[in-house]
Design a protein around this nucleic acid. Structure first.
Lengths: 250, 250
DNA sequence: CGAGCGTTTGATCGGTGTCAAGGATCGTGG
DNA sequence: CCACGATCCTTGACACCGATCAAACGCTCG
């Protein structure tokens, strides 16, 4: 019932963080899971609910968000194929944020209990999962800086750069052109802007020749200019581990 | 040379997250460490530098921050006695943010290598440390929402509530009165506001009777009103684990 | 063809930034 | 003990970025 193909994605990802031995690999691939499809806007979990499952995103896009007073919301992260989501909620037992599908999505659900058992049995795998969530945290920190201290043009350029590199790394698109699976309202919720202003900002970036747009896809016409406009340094994504050394830790 | 008293703080904190056995405790207390004092404004580590050590904060206050273009900076977290800081940087090897002392501070340095060895030998401890960094991440998410979607009055009230509960939990002060170890400029860097506007906002909260101020200390005169003003729900701090059940995970 | 949703654009408003100056507090050295 | 400088706090006047309100437009799918 366990198709290795499905958990291989997770294994590959974890092995980017940490050298595994055969038993580590076997243990990861032996995780029990179920697959679930989500429709756009469908919630995987809501804030305040007890959280059972971690989730490996197979296809599509998810976001995590928080609702705040006055009916506003803030998207705190966006996830794409290969990402492990909801580790936080499932290990901390009660969800402190919502996880919602941006597009049609397919997720692999793994119980928090199984994750803990795996971590207990295979410390090496535990460390790899830990590192994965630490990188998650690094992206959170960059987002705090992005929404807190950059102006609309800069924060918009920044998120476009981030999505470009993350989609490239996930094998979903080229850095120079990718599908942006979010409405302008959702982009606003990620950037702390109104949809109207997102629209104006994207238009300005386009008229300045940094990007061009076509329906829901983005073409980056001038990467360097966009990178400068967004004050973007990809170090916080820890992408370089894909090639190079086998382990993040000394 | 290893005084148990020093690492006991760390042990107690980890045991809030996870049930330990005798060997777990011994292993934590056997960690090699060095103690270092920091002057106000002194950096423990700078972004981009190779990171060697994790750090347990013994006394004083630290912040983590990022510098962005145009000379602005964003504080992404504030830490007080008992917090474990720099796990992220030391495990990911290259610092993606700065760690700086806000006040005189005393830190216990533990090498990333020792942390990894401990995690490998005692999976249970690894899970507890992992959970600690996950709670860290939960606070990051709340801060994204805070700087992204709340107005000045609300975000200021929110951070005052957060500091109150965290200092109370750390045994540093009462919820209703505590020392705020930050200048208004630093508060602004944490909230994404200018120091001038922080000043006006604090004054407004004071005139509305929610708080009163005296030098660098804050008295919360009307907790409920401040909580409402700040849209503050402490769930994201995961404080309730202090009492109650012995483990976060099922 | 119509309904619904998302995008685009314009006009105006308001919250926060900027600039500037003065006041309070603290540490330091005479 | 006082003088001084440095740092932080406070306040006012004004500017501007992004929010708000409103309406039209375009696409997609029944």
């Amino acid at each position: 019932m366990n198709s290795p193909a499905i958990l291989n994605t997770m294994l590959e990802r974890l092995e980017r963080h940490r050298q595994f031995d055969a038993e580590d690999r076997t243990a990861v691939l032996a995780l029990p899971y179920t697959v679930r499809k989500l429709r756009p806007h469908e919630h995987l979990i809501r804030e305040g609910e007890p959280a059972e499952n971690s989730c490996l995103l197979r296809s599509g896009f998810l976001c995590r968000h928080k609702i705040i007073a006055a009916g506003h919301r803030q998207i705190v992260s966006v996830h794409m194929a290969g990402d492990m989501v909801n580790m936080q909620n499932s290990l901390l037992k009660t969800a402190d944020h919502n996880v919602q599908a941006l597009t049609e999505a397919e997720v692999v659900l793994i119980s928090g209990r199984a994750i803990i058992e795996l971590a207990t049995a295979r410390p090496n795998v535990a460390i790899a999962m830990w590192l994965d969530t630490l990188i998650d945290g690094s992206i959170f920190r960059e987002w705090i800086a992005n929404v807190g201290r950059r102006d609309a043009r800069s924060k918009t350029a920044h998120i476009l750069c981030e999505f470009a590199l993350r989609q490239e790394r996930a094998g979903l698109a080229a850095r120079s052109r990718y599908d942006l699976p979010m409405t302008q309202e959702q982009l606003g919720d990620a950037l702390g802007l109104t949809p109207v202003h997102v629209n104006r900002t994207l238009k300005a970036l386009e008229q300045a020749g940094l990007i061009s747009r076509n329906r829901r896809s983005v073409t980056i016409s001038d990467w360097d200019a966009l990178r400068v406009a967004g004050d973007f340094d990809p170090a916080y994504l820890y992408l370089e581990l894909a090639e190079g050394e086998r382990s993040l830790v000394a």
